[in-house]
């Protein structure tokens, strides 16, 4: 599905915005994943050669993973990369397809909104209870807020994709 054309100025602005997001998030997600990899390596090396594993490696891995997954979600959403089955695609009349797309996107959007909203509440709870990690005693709420915000950003991207594709139909 091609969504964006240069003739559409709003789509052009949207394109810029998307480019900006990718330029911002791709280095971040790369660093987080590379960090995860190096962390395991040095943790094992430290444990065997120097008898001193990295303190809290487990928690740092968990934190990096959350960053990879939720930034990855934003990238994935902008590429419309979720797993779908298009088995009956050929049997769906062309007239119905736009409506089908709208409904599917609304469902996707609803799921992202609910996840984002509930994570926000959970982050608030974690802040109130003072939840921390077991070993490094890092506060959990900022990370959960981050998850919530990134899910929300993914939702926004999806909303723009929807609006753009509606405009394209016209």
């Amino acid at each position: 599905m091609t969504l964006l054309t240069k003739s559409n100025t709003q789509a052009g602005a949207w394109n810029l915005c998307l480019n900006f997001l990718h330029r911002l998030f791709e280095p971040l997600v790369s660093i987080a994943l590379f960090f995860m990899m190096a962390l395991t390596f040095f943790d094992v090396i430290g444990r065997y050669i120097f008898n001193s594993p990295i303190i809290g490696a487990l928690e740092l891995t968990e934190f990096s993973m959350a960053i990879v997954i939720f930034l990855g979600l934003v990238l994935l959403t902008s590429q419309e990369g979720h797993v779908t089955v298009d088995l009956i695609d050929n049997f769906v009349p062309d007239k119905i397809k736009p409506i089908q797309n709208i409904i599917i996107n609304l469902i996707n959007l609803a799921v992202l909104i609910v996840i984002s909203w509930q994570l926000w509440i959970k982050a608030g709870d974690a802040a109130e209870y003072g939840d921390r990690t077991e070993y490094l005693y890092m506060p959990l709420s900022p990370l959960i807020f981050f998850m919530s915000i990134m899910t929300g950003v993914a939702g926004l991207i999806l909303l723009f994709i929807m609006i753009n594709s509606l405009k394209m139909e016209k």
Binding site: T84, I88, D89, I104, I107
Partner: peptide, 8 residues
């Protein structure tokens, strides 16, 4: 089958 992404 209606093409909703499987996780959703």
């Amino acid at each position: 089958l209606a093409k909703v992404p499987i996780p959703m």
